[in-house]
Write a protein that binds this DNA or RNA. Structure first.
Lengths: 206, 206
DNA sequence: TGCATCTGACAACGGTTCATGTCAATAGGA
DNA sequence: TCCTATTGACATGAACCGTTGTCAGATGCA
């Protein structure tokens, strides 16, 4: 009967805790890559593990099922993307229109850098499960808030759900990106931004 | 060695040809129902067959694989929907704005009648396969054309691909519908139509 | 009525995936 | 150096699905 005096041991310079966290990060990165290449529904746990350089045993150490990784990687991507946008806006000068232009440019440039991820994390994950849908909806709502804030609009009062028009604008901005990606980036980015702006500026009318 | 004098025989009042066509129809209807209830990715061939009241053997008589049924049922739904819209527009009176209002009302009313189908056939099927994506893209393009035509805009010249702005408007109109559905139809339909109109009218600016 | 076509229920096969388990080899601590 | 936690490669089992095949019974025709 081992008294387990050293239940957790340092290994390669890291504690057990650190190694776990490190592996989790590896899975997140691998998931973003694999989902982007194959799409979520075609990606297998095995493929993600191979890309992460780890085995299934560690997969189930960090995630209880495959879908949990999807949600986690989606949120990681969105956190990163929103951070980029906030940063761009903070550096923007000029009025609301110019600030929106800056933000949209940052947005479409980011999607251009990761074209495959865009489709997966903006469209394909829809309907995978209620938990995933909820995460997606929350993220779109955040994006809508960011647009409205950048335009200098006051926050929507106690509305639990963003206005339909705002949801429509967000959907339109996204569809523009998807179409642009599907066309192989045949239009210069300023045209893409211009189309997005036309939609966003609808929020200012009235 | 049978000389097969009556290779195909009438059965229950129908010829072999007619029975085949009838079964195909049954599968299409069943698919629309089952996909709407369970989503495409969770729906099985078996479930569709059960809903159709037929067996797998007949499934593979009409469709070579599962995905073929998806494309066929998608196109059937879209043909029906576009027909409804054309009909509504033909009966509309007034200027472009009024005609768009009539069309959008018909659109959102139709989606309200088949809420589950909407999500499946507008979002979930994206990325299932290149063939499916192509059918979806074509259908969205048609919808964009219809909007533009209803607004009295001239057709886009030789552009192989619709403008980004037009794609954005279509995406926005759809997202409005999805949000409305997800909210449990909490807004009256005229508000939904109003939001959609604000987006569509962007196409008239400039 | 007798016979061949047609139908529907169900079995069977092959493949895939998730999730868990096994085990030898490696690396760190005493 | 010895022992054990840790790792990674691989095996295993259970479940599911698409697709094809089997077969008895129902149906229509001569």
């Amino acid at each position: 009967m081992p008294s387990s005096p050293v239940a957790h041991r340092r290994y390669r310079g890291s504690s057990a805790e650190e190694r776990r966290a490190q592996r989790r990060e590896q899975f997140l990165e691998a998931a973003i890559q694999v989902y982007g290449e194959q799409g979520y529904r075609n990606a297998t746990v095995k493929a993600v593990c191979e890309a992460a350089g780890l085995t299934e045993r560690y997969f189930y150490e960090s995630f209880s099922h495959s879908e949990e990784l999807l949600v986690a990687s989606f949120q990681a991507v969105m956190r990163f993307l929103m951070g980029e946008l906030e940063k761009a806006i903070a550096e923007a000068t000029g009025g609301p229109a110019e600030r929106i232009r800056t933000m949209l440019t940052a947005y479409y440039e980011a999607l251009q850098r990761y074209p495959r991820s865009a489709r997966v994390f903006l469209v394909e994950i829809s309907g995978v499960s209620p938990a995933v849908d909820q995460a997606l909806e929350a993220s779109l709502g955040e994006f809508g808030d960011l647009i409205a804030r950048t335009l200098g609009l006051r926050e929507e009062g106690g509305a639990a759900r963003p206005s339909l028009l705002r949801a429509g604008v967000v959907g339109g901005v996204i569809h523009i990106a998807l179409n642009w990606i599907a066309s192989g980036y045949s239009q210069p980015i300023h045209e893409v931004v211009g189309a997005g702006m036309r939609l966003c500026l609808v929020l200012r009318e009235r």
